[in-house]
């Protein structure tokens, strides 16, 4: 690790291959991990939605609708469907080749990006991505209906974990790794913000009117989408409040799916980047700015002044940073 050697290199007069990488390769690594992360989060989201549809059939429509909203897919869905039946929504979010946000499409994109950059990956990492693609495609082709859904979603999360595991266990800690890490964290921050945003009304002071407990199933769904229900209970015991959940998912740097954790990682990763130059410092400056913004707003203020507005702003900041990374490191001609 080279956290102390990050001081400004001026980018010119490079060569050692540890420093240089094609901009297109950086882009492929970054997007491979964004898609992989997206796939994994969509699997979590569908899992949570499925559970709610099982336990609360009368609200089925709104649950699946909110799941689609989180994936920014409601409009596209309604073009080809006119109800929110579990089977149709699951088919659309998981298997549909024509839905660019489906698990199948994200997986194909992740693998295609890995294929483009396979010379930068370790053999283990490439084989993990390729293996995930092969196995999950077989599983998706054989998927027969909702009785198999939990098993399918489990496999998806497991394959994603396998890729991250081989990546962590075999890849050099150089810029190749850093671009992958950035992609994963940018995507994860976005997804966590979206999960919260879809449910922000549950956490509003008006709906959680003083004294009335939060809707148990609703908050469980939020936590479940971030695989955080167990951790939350462990840390907070029975003390469940809107502020505690927001604080946990936004601010708690111990939680690897919290926005603060993602930004802490993004910030350190950008600072360690070997390919840093004056131009690429713009990305680091922006990350620092956003990171400070996140940490500077307490959950009470966020809820008081508008959780939705805070999250919308955060999603915009996040995609702005993603675009800045792409520019700074010359992803595109």
């Amino acid at each position: 690790m080279s956290s102390q050697s990050q001081t400004q290199q001026t980018g010119v007069g490079l060569t050692p291959s540890d420093q240089t990488m094609l901009g297109r390769t950086a882009s492929g690594l970054f997007w491979m991990m964004r898609y992989l992360e997206r796939m994994e989060n969509t699997a979590r989201l569908v899992d949570a939605g499925f559970r709610m549809s099982l336990t609360r059939s009368r609200t089925q429509r709104s649950e699946w609708e909110s799941v689609l909203t989180t994936s920014s897919a409601t409009q596209a869905y309604l073009k080809t469907h006119d109800d929110f039946r579990t089977d149709s929504v699951v088919e659309f979010l998981v298997c549909d080749r024509d839905n660019p946000g489906s698990i199948r499409s994200s997986l194909a994109e992740a693998r295609q990006n890995a294929r483009m950059t396979r010379t930068a990956l370790t053999i283990d990492t490439w084989e993990a991505v390729n293996g995930a693609w092969l196995q999950l495609n077989i599983a998706l082709d054989n998927y027969k209906g909702k009785q198999e859904l939990p098993e399918l979603l489990f496999q998806i999360r497991q394959q994603a974990a396998l890729v991250r595991g081989t990546m962590n266990g075999t890849m050099l800690r150089n810029d190749i790794f850093r671009f992958m890490e950035l992609g994963a964290m940018i995507e994860r921050a976005d997804n966590t913000a979206r999960i919260l945003d879809t449910k922000y009304y549950v956490l509003l002071p008006s709906s959680a009117s003083v004294g009335s407990p939060l809707d148990h199933v609703q908050w469980e769904m939020i936590l479940r989408c971030a695989s955080a229900e167990r951790s939350f209970h462990w840390l907070h015991g029975g003390d469940i409040s809107a502020a505690a959940i927001v604080n946990f998912l936004v601010h708690d740097i111990r939680l690897p799916r919290s926005i603060a954790f993602c930004y802490k990682t993004i910030r350190t990763t950008l600072a360690e980047m070997k390919a840093n130059s004056e131009a690429s410092n713009a990305a680091l400056d922006m990350a620092i700015l956003h990171n400070d913004h996140i940490n500077g707003s307490s959950s009470e203020t966020i809820i008081g002044f508008g959780l939705h507005e805070f999250l919308i702003d955060l999603i915009a900041r996040n995609s702005e940073l993603s675009a800045q990374i792409e520019t700074s490191y010359r992803f595109q001609p």
Partner: peptide
Amino acid sequence: DQMGVELVEGGDLRIVDGRVAMRTTCGFQ
């Protein structure tokens, strides 16, 4: 991969100062 050299596409390359150069994360090489 086996030779340890870059795999480039046309879009990665450009003429810079009389040489054919590839667009890397730190500039053209």
